[in-house]
Simulated scan of single mutants.
Amino acid sequence: MGAIELKNVTFAYPNGFVANENLNLVVKKGERVAIVGQNGAGKTTAVKLMNGLTKPTMGDVFVDGINTKDRTTAQISAYVGYVFQNPDDQIFNSSVKKEIEYMLHYLRLDQKEIDRRVARTVELTGLKDYLGMNPYDVPYSIRKFVTIAVILALDTPYIILDEPTAGQDLNSIRALSNLLNILQNEGKTVITITHDMEFVADHFTRVVTMANKRIIADDTARNIFWDDHVVSKAKLMKPQISELANQLGIDGKVLYRNELVEALTDRQLGTQKQVKSMGF
């Protein structure tokens, strides 16, 4: 079974600034993993190591057993697709359709296969009405889906999404949620960097938490958000439901709305029983 594996990885820029320090991480095929932490924690550098945009100063990164040091960025990109946080850093073609097709032509796929991939990707991302438009003429939220479509068309086994919910409205986030489910059903690995803790709680069971250039925790979303030491060190904002439960003094690592309702109901029933036992 394939995996992305970071072994004792440290990355320093030419000026000596260390962005990542002694990272050890394994992400297996089919997993859905969120990487969280404050700005400057080293999240983006870590995922750029995964897709070969940067190479470790020390240690090794393996993608399906291939050491990224032994391959070019273009070769690793056939395994790991990376959707940038800002779509404007990724888009350069004159139409949405040309943007999606560009890398497929570069890979010299036959036209029938290109048409098949474009059609499927457009269906997944809802871009049908925008194919003839210049990407810079479509709304920002749609532009982000254009860059996602480019990576989906490449059909890489690993997909990295950098802040996918930033600038997205509720409908776009719902579409993104549906897309994540489809990709997981297809056995794709999705790694997401995000500051959106509600999105993390709703869609990711495994959460890798970074602070001060290191991985400080790797656990379920429930355990991460109810570990006050990790939350404080990584400067995370708890999901609203968890924060409300905490303020109400409710134990049980509440993460979802239905859990909070159940806990409040149990508390009310307990209070009623106590009042009855006192003869009131």
Score class of each variant (00 low, 15 high):
240 Q>P: 07
193 I>K: 05
238 K>L: 15
227 D>C: 12
174 R>V: 14
198 E>C: 01
169 D>R: 05
193 I>H: 04
142 I>D: 00
151 I>G: 00
172 S>H: 13
155 D>I: 00
148 I>D: 04
147 T>P: 00
224 I>Y: 08
173 I>S: 03
224 I>C: 10
213 K>R: 15
143 R>H: 11
208 V>K: 02
211 A>R: 09
140 Y>C: 00
182 I>Y: 14
164 P>Q: 05
226 W>T: 03
149 A>V: 07
239 P>S: 08
192 T>V: 15
165 T>R: 04
170 L>K: 13
231 V>H: 07
166 A>P: 02
178 N>K: 13
236 L>E: 06
214 R>V: 03
148 I>F: 12
140 Y>G: 02
161 L>W: 00
204 F>Y: 14
204 F>W: 12
229 H>E: 15
237 M>T: 14
180 L>D: 05
184 Q>F: 13
187 G>K: 09
228 D>W: 08
166 A>F: 04
158 Y>D: 01
210 M>N: 04
210 M>E: 05
148 I>Q: 06
184 Q>C: 07
225 F>K: 01
140 Y>I: 02
173 I>W: 09
188 K>P: 01
190 V>N: 07
150 V>S: 10
242 S>V: 06
215 I>E: 02
163 E>K: 04
214 R>T: 10
184 Q>K: 15
224 I>P: 07
226 W>H: 15
177 S>R: 14
231 V>S: 04
244 L>M: 15
220 T>R: 08
219 D>V: 04
213 K>C: 07
212 N>A: 15
243 E>N: 12
171 N>G: 12
224 I>S: 08
173 I>M: 10
203 H>C: 06
226 W>G: 00
207 V>F: 13
147 T>V: 11
191 I>W: 03
238 K>S: 09
168 Q>P: 02
195 H>Y: 14
197 M>C: 10
244 L>H: 09
210 M>Q: 06
229 H>T: 13
200 V>P: 02
155 D>S: 08
227 D>E: 12
182 I>N: 10
164 P>R: 01
165 T>K: 05
148 I>L: 12
186 E>N: 10
180 L>E: 05
177 S>E: 14
230 V>C: 11
